[in-house]
Amino acid sequence: MPLSLTQQSVEELGGRSSVLVRQRRDHAELDRLMNLYRADGRTEEERRRTLKDIVQLTFSHAFAEETVLWPALRRLAPDGEALTARVEEEHQEINDLVAEIERTGPADPRRDVLVERAFALIRQDIRDEEDLLLPRLQEALRHDPKHLRALGTAWEAVRRTAPTHPHPAVPRRPPGNALAGVPLSALDRVRDALPAGARAVLGRTVATLAAAAVSRWRAVDRSRRGR
C-alpha cells in the first residue's frame, strides 16, 4: 500500500518541482486559510478576504488537477478511472456549494452553514488525494521522477491561468473543461480585481458565458460521437 503524501519527505516525493510536492503545498495553504477564516476576533471584512483567497485557490487548483493529473492517473493506473470519478464528484459538490455561498450575503443565516459544509468537503478531498489518488500516481511513476517533475511544471502552468470561481456546469474532464473553462479564466480574474458591486454584475455575465461555452462543447461532443 503506497504511503500517504503526509508521511513522505520532499525528496521521496520527487523534489521541490514534483507535482506531488506542489499539490501538498497547496493543500497546506488551504488548511491554513480555512483555520484563519475560523479564527476568533476577525472582522467580517477579514473573513470575506480570506474566503475569497480560499475560493480562488480551491478552483484554480482543482482545474489543474482535472486538466493535467487525473487524465495521467487514468492512463497509468488500472484503478485510475474509479479513483478520479470519486474525486470529480467531490469537486462537483464543492462547485455547487461555493456557487450557493457566492449567492448569499454576509447576513444570510445560511452562509456559515454552507461555508462549514464546503470546508468539510475540501478537507475530505485533500485526504482522498493525499492518501489515495496521488500515492497511486506516485506508485505508477516510481521509476520516473522526471515525469513527476514534468507533470508539476504542466500543472503549475494550468493552475496559474485557471478559473478562480465555481462554474458548476463546466465539464470535469478534458477537452470539455478546457473549452468551457479556460475562456472564463480571464473574466474570473478581472472579476476578482473589481469592487463588490461590479463583481456581481460581471459574475452574471460570466455565468451566461459559461452556459454558452458548455452548450457549445455539448454540441461539439454530440457531433463527434455521431461520427
Rank of each mutant, 00 (worst) to 15 (best):
M1C: 04
P2K: 04
L3H: 14
T6D: 15
E11A: 15
G15S: 01
R16H: 13
H27A: 05
A28S: 12
E29F: 02
L33R: 08
M34K: 00
L36W: 13
A39G: 07
D40Y: 11
G41F: 04
T43N: 10
R49I: 00
L51N: 09
L51I: 07
Q56H: 14
H61V: 06
H61C: 04
H61D: 06
A62N: 05
F63Q: 01
A64Y: 01
E65S: 10
T67F: 02
V68W: 04
W70A: 02
P71I: 06
P71Q: 05
L73R: 04
L76F: 06
P78A: 10
A85L: 10
V87L: 12
E88Y: 05
E93G: 03
I101E: 09
E102V: 07
T104N: 05
G105L: 12
R110E: 09
R111I: 10
R111C: 04
V115K: 04
R117V: 09
L121I: 07
L121P: 05
D128Y: 15
E129I: 00
E129W: 01
E130W: 04
L133Q: 15
P135N: 08
P135M: 08
P135H: 06
R136E: 15
R136P: 12
L137S: 14
Q138N: 07
E139G: 11
E139S: 15
R142K: 14
D144W: 03
K146E: 15
K146A: 15
L148C: 06
A154R: 14
A157W: 01
R159C: 03
R159E: 12
A162Y: 09
P163L: 03
H165Y: 12
V170L: 09
P171D: 02
R173A: 14
P174W: 11
G176A: 03
G176R: 05
N177M: 07
L179K: 05
L179W: 09
A180K: 05
A180L: 02
G181F: 03
S185D: 04
D188G: 01
R189P: 02
A196F: 09
A196P: 02
G197V: 00
R199S: 11
A200M: 02
G203E: 11
V206D: 00
V206A: 04
L209Y: 05
A210F: 00
A211I: 00
A212V: 12
V214G: 10
S215A: 14
R216G: 11
R218Q: 15
A219V: 05
S223Q: 04
R227I: 08
